[in-house]
Amino acid sequence: MEVLKTFPLGQYIPGNSLLHGISAKAKIIVSFWLIIIIFLLKLNFYSYLLFFFLILLGILLSSLPINYFVRSLKPVYFLVLFTFIIHFFFGEEGGRVYFRYGIIHITDNGIKMALFMSLRLIYLVLITSLLTLTTSVLELAQAIEDLLKPLNFVKFPVHEFSMMMTIAIRFVPTLLEETDKIIKAQKARGAEFGKGNLISQAKSLLPIIIPLFINAFRRANELAEAMEARCYRGAKGRTRYRVSRWTIKDLVFLTIGILYPILLLVFF
């Protein structure tokens, strides 16, 4: 099952770049801010170009090879192409008309929209990749916990929520590995997968799914016991081994990340 091995998981690439060193909180805030800005950005060439410079700066600061970013676009190639074609042939009316046949029409506005909508999607993916490639899952979960802390006032169990998230993410590779093992074991007993009609295909998956579920429950039980044995009692009175503090670097990053897009909005 090569699929399991090429699963796009744990995108995080360890490194010592400037972007790796910035606190996850700052990175999350800026990423969200940029995503909002993308949708507010005026549809003209200059604002998109200048916005791209910001992303380019991020890529340079991450000092990761460019092909990691190209690869992260792979899952959305089709979506981008689809968006482009829809807008290109069936898009908005307006401006010069280059071609018209039935419902198909190529216009100035349509081409413009096709271009900008595709760019939006690409920008979105690049920004999230910048975040996930340079921030480990643990850092992300802790940062989310910190950022959601205000929700404690409305009795939202922030710590439990982030602990759940961390555990779920932590166990994805374990479960994948286990799936691989179970598939091999059942294959060794002559099981075949993905053959026959839909019903027999679904049935042939039972020998994989049932042990997987049972093992997941067993594992959950063991984990709960191990946590209790170490006196885990939820958020109350719990402190961190690594406390993240805001540094000058983070603040500079935050200021640039927030102000630059605002300037783009104001001037273009």
């Binding site: 179970i182 074991a185 060794a188 039972l206 042990p211």
Partner: peptide
């Protein structure tokens, strides 16, 4: 091949279904 080579993995009881 299954009729010729039988393999029992480590902790085989985790494959029960």
């Amino acid at each position: 091949l299954c009729k010729i080579i039988g393999i029992v993995f480590q902790y085989p009881e985790y494959q029960f279904f």
